[in-house]
């Protein structure tokens, strides 16, 4: 398979809208994940969600809602496997995470052989082929994510930063942990459709990592992560259109460059405090 050379046939307004929506909901979620020490976890979930998505395709469904259900199921399964490996077999977290996500990714790829979808679409996404119902799904996700951020700013951040501290403020951190897991898996479904299972980090990790260099407050962290995500989306998409290669790897590369540049430039500018 030749992922990188895949040409983008036609970019329509839906693809552009998808990019904007992805930036709006995945980047803030990425910010939350960093402080839960879950950014690697989020990326690993992207790999493991593939199996669930493929199973749904195998069952003959294609709607984003059904795919989400599959992804959530496989994410929950993975997190249970992870817990089991950690508590019963006493594996360190990073090892347990790699074992469970690589295992689930392998399973997903294996199952995809007989699914009515090209593996390539799942691994690096297919922004050009994104359909109306998927965009509706992304719109809903963006609304849900933004309303969580606006109305649950304090409990969400408190439980992400320090679960015990959140509990001593009277917030139920378990509930928010579950919420975060659910949001992550639904987000992963959106990302698999657009940038693919392998490049989930493009939207979930890079924008947050890049804006850490500049942010002076939680609010500015979230806002600047969205700006970074939008910027690398547009540069990546534009480059892929002009030079005729697949958008997802281009966006990922721009995200990576943006992260490095952002931290490098922040180093050069002397800080006031």
């Amino acid at each position: 398979m030749d992922f990188a050379a895949r040409t983008v046939m036609e970019w329509n307004s839906l693809s552009w809208e998808a990019l904007i929506l992805l930036s709006i909901f995945a980047a803030p979620l990425g910010c939350l994940l960093i402080f839960r020490r879950m950014s690697y976890f989020g990326d690993a979930l992207g790999h493991s969600a593939l199996a669930g998505v493929v199973v749904i395709y195998l069952m003959g469904w294609q709607s984003p809602w059904a795919l989400s259900a599959g992804a959530i199921a496989s994410v929950l399964l993975t997190s249970q496997i992870l817990k089991f490996l950690e508590s019963q077999f006493r594996l360190p977290t990073d090892l347990a995470l790699t074992v469970s996500s690589a295992g689930m990714l392998g399973l997903g790829i294996l199952l995809s052989a007989s699914a009515p979808i090209q593996l390539e679409h799942l691994l690096v996404g297919d922004l050009a082929a994104i359909n109306e119902s998927m965009v509706w799904f992304l719109r809903l996700l963006a609304v849900v994510m933004l309303s969580f951020l606006i109305f649950m700013w304090k409990p969400l951040w408190a439980s992400v930063i320090d679960a015990r501290f959140a509990r001593s403020l009277g917030f139920s951190s378990h509930r928010f942990d579950f919420l975060l897991l659910a949001l992550t898996s639904v987000t992963v479904v959106g990302l698999i459709q657009s940038v693919g299972a392998i490049l989930v980090a493009t939207y979930l990790v890079f924008p947050a990592a890049a804006s850490l260099a500049w942010a002076k407050s939680l609010r500015s962290l979230v806002v600047s992560s969205i700006v970074f995500a939008l910027a690398s989306s547009f540069f990546g998409a534009y480059a892929s259109m002009r030079l005729q290669f697949a958008p997802a790897p281009a966006i990922a590369t721009f995200g990576f460059l943006a992260t490095l540049l952002s931290h490098g430039v922040a180093r050069l500018i002397p800080s006031k405090d």
């Binding site: 960093i34 402080f35 930063i161 320090d162 679960a163 015990r164 501290f165 001593s168 002076k216 939680l218």
Partner: peptide, 15 residues
Amino acid sequence: YLPQQSAQQRLLPVS
């Protein structure tokens, strides 16, 4: 509660 060692919050971009 003030824990003996605070959870790793020092990445936080806050004043």
